[in-house]
Amino acid sequence: MSGTYASVIRALQDRVYRRGIHYQLDAVASAVSMLGLKDRPLPKALHVAGTNGKGSTLSFMAHGLFAAGYQVGTFTSPHLFRYNERVQVNMTAISDSAMCRYLQPVLDLDLPLTEFEVLCLMSWSYFADQELDYVIYETGLGGRLDATQVITPILSVITRIDMDHMELLGETIAQIAAEKAGIIREGVPVITLADQHPEALQVIDAHAQDRSSLLTLVEPPFVLPDTYQMKASFQAENLALARAAVAPLLAPEEMRLAEQGFAKAVCPGRFQVIDPALVIVDAAHNPHAIRALVQALRQGYPEQSFQVIAGILARKNANEMLTTLSEFASELYLCDFDPPNSMSASSVPSLVSPVDLSHCQSLSRQRPTVVTGSIFFLDAFLRLEEGFG
């Protein structure tokens, strides 16, 4: 018997505080066996890893396949407002009642599973009971030892690789790329960017050769059509990866329908305009993502000046991120939205001005504003906005 939605979510959140990040697969492998998941096969699976662009690439892929007439399940992380967002069928989140029903058996296991691992296992059970043609899984962290490795994909996609989560993935691009390339399976094709960081590309190529996997390199289009919902300049490479991923799966007429689906793809919290007076939110949470955001703003709004309100987790490389933002913003504010987990303006007084979370909304109404940083900060900010959260 499953509990109420609130009680099940509390039990799930408990996993964060008890276990944190568990970068190995022993408990997950045991859970797969105990839950009998191997006897409940998933539909054809696509696997997406990388540092930046995973969620947007997955959204393009899902919208394309759905527009072509296929039923698609997606597993993503983190969520913006509710856990249900992480598990969707045809862009519709799992219901509260189904969330309870499928989470409870995993929570009942006497295993030291993390929140992410519980959700990943739950998604398998849920998707196996739906009539789906494809499922697309986004890694949570790395790839080699990520819980999503329990799936067996027909295709792997590796998005842009850059510096992030160095405490777990390594201190160099090559080391991080080796973790991401861990999703490459024996004989399973893999797609990545032709202009990937040279050290990352070398590692991905070596992994593909070792596993006899066909490696396809894709070039992004120069610009995205104005008709696209996601048309920030940095989305071009994510679209290119999505196109290359779904094209081999579709007939020519289906691919034409998929192109219509790409145009409708959205990824909440990624270069999202939430106010006609120009308030843009973007979950740029590492130095590369911040640079891409600034470039997209300069290209999309060449004559516009913006103030920036940032909220950054304390463990991030905040100095580099804030330096980049300070060179762009007319005014730069830092919100300590979740002390002590978030960074305080007092640690970088020369770069930023402090702002309380309660004042962020009124501040954003004064002039064109970019709200960026941790997705958890975007969640907190958007909950101040009427109609969000």
Rank of each mutant, 00 (worst) to 15 (best):
M1H: 12
T4D: 02
V8Q: 05
I9N: 06
A11S: 09
L12F: 12
R19W: 14
G20T: 06
I21C: 09
H22G: 08
Y23G: 09
Q24I: 04
L25C: 04
V28D: 06
A29G: 10
D39C: 07
P41D: 11
P43A: 07
L46F: 07
H47V: 02
G50Q: 05
G50A: 12
T51A: 11
F60L: 03
M61T: 05
A62W: 11
H63R: 08
H63V: 03
L65C: 01
A67C: 13
Y70V: 03
Q71H: 14
V72F: 13
G73W: 03
R82I: 12
V87D: 08
T92Y: 07
I94E: 13
A98G: 11
M99V: 14
M99L: 15
R101G: 06
R101I: 12
Y102L: 11
Q104N: 15
Q104V: 11
L107T: 12
D110T: 15
P112M: 13
P112R: 12
P112V: 13
L113W: 13
L113C: 14
E117P: 01
V118N: 07
V118R: 01
C120N: 10
S123D: 07
S125H: 08
Q130P: 00
D133C: 02
Y134T: 00
I136G: 01
G140Y: 01
L145D: 05
A147K: 05
T148A: 03
Q149W: 02
V150T: 07
I151S: 00
T152G: 03
T152W: 00
I158V: 06
I158N: 04
I161K: 00
D162G: 15
M163W: 03
H165V: 12
E167T: 12
E167F: 00
L169P: 06
G170M: 01
A174L: 05
A177V: 03
A177Y: 11
E179F: 05
E179L: 07
E179P: 01
G182H: 08
R185F: 07
E186T: 03
V190C: 14
T192I: 04
A194H: 11
A194Q: 15
D195I: 08
Q196F: 11
H197N: 09
H197Y: 01
A200Q: 06
I204E: 01
A208P: 14
Q209H: 12
S212W: 02
S213P: 09
L215W: 01
E219Y: 07
P221Q: 10
F222E: 14
A232F: 00
S233H: 15
L250Y: 11
A251E: 15
A258M: 04
E259A: 13
F262V: 10
A263D: 03
P276E: 04
A277T: 13
A277P: 04
D282H: 11
P287W: 01
H288M: 07
H288G: 04
H288F: 02
I290C: 03
L293H: 03
V294A: 04
L297K: 01
R298F: 06
G300P: 09
P302T: 08
Q304R: 14
A314D: 08
A318E: 07
E320W: 08
L325Y: 06
S326L: 02
F328N: 05
A329S: 14
S330V: 09
Y333T: 10
D338I: 02
A345Y: 05
S350E: 15
V352Y: 06
P354Q: 10
D356W: 06
S358A: 15
S358L: 12
S362T: 13
S364V: 06
R365M: 05
Q366C: 12
S374Y: 14
S374H: 07
L378T: 15
F381E: 02
L384W: 00
